[in-house]
Amino acid sequence: MYNISDMVYDCPVEALASILGKKWVGGIIWAIQDDKVRFGDLQRKMNKCSKKMLIQQLDLLIENNIIINDKKLIKNTVESTYYLSESGLALLNVMAKMIEWSNQHITCEE
């Protein structure tokens, strides 16, 4: 059994699809693949994503150990940075294969 946000799945593919299928999740993961990113920088990269939605999706990704939120106290201010966990980094290969498959098999209309 696989638990994702209080939902139980029998199939691991279905469980992962329930995460990756949420709007903005793929873009968030892809946007922070190379480095630690502060919230404001991530929000600028995801410019059409509302702050509320970005927070919700980051919480989902943190809850499922895909993203890590590193908080540090600097001069009485909490600096929060986000980066991919080990499992999040491993997920990049899966996403790259999904992109490759989509480019070969799905027609994209502009």
Rank of each mutant, 00 (worst) to 15 (best):
N69T: 01
K36S: 11
L89H: 13
I62M: 09
N76T: 10
L60F: 00
L61P: 00
T81I: 09
C108I: 12
N64Y: 01
A31G: 05
L42Y: 04
I68T: 06
Q56K: 15
P12E: 10
K23D: 12
S18T: 06
E63C: 08
I68N: 08
P12M: 04
I28M: 03
K52N: 14
L89C: 11
W101R: 13
A96R: 13
I74G: 04
K22P: 01
K97N: 14
A17T: 06
Q57V: 04
S18A: 15
L20I: 07
D41R: 07
T81N: 12
Q43N: 08
D6N: 15
K71C: 13
N47K: 10
N47R: 10
V8E: 14
V94S: 09
I99K: 14
L73K: 11
S87K: 07
D10H: 10
S85K: 02
L91C: 05
L20F: 03
I106S: 06
D41G: 11
C108E: 08
K23S: 12
I4E: 02
T107M: 08
K36I: 04
C11F: 11
I67W: 00
G21E: 05
M98T: 12
I32M: 06
K71L: 12
A15S: 08
S85N: 04
L92W: 01
S18E: 12
I67T: 01
S102N: 14
D41W: 02
I28D: 00
S102W: 11
I29V: 10
Q33Y: 07
N103F: 07
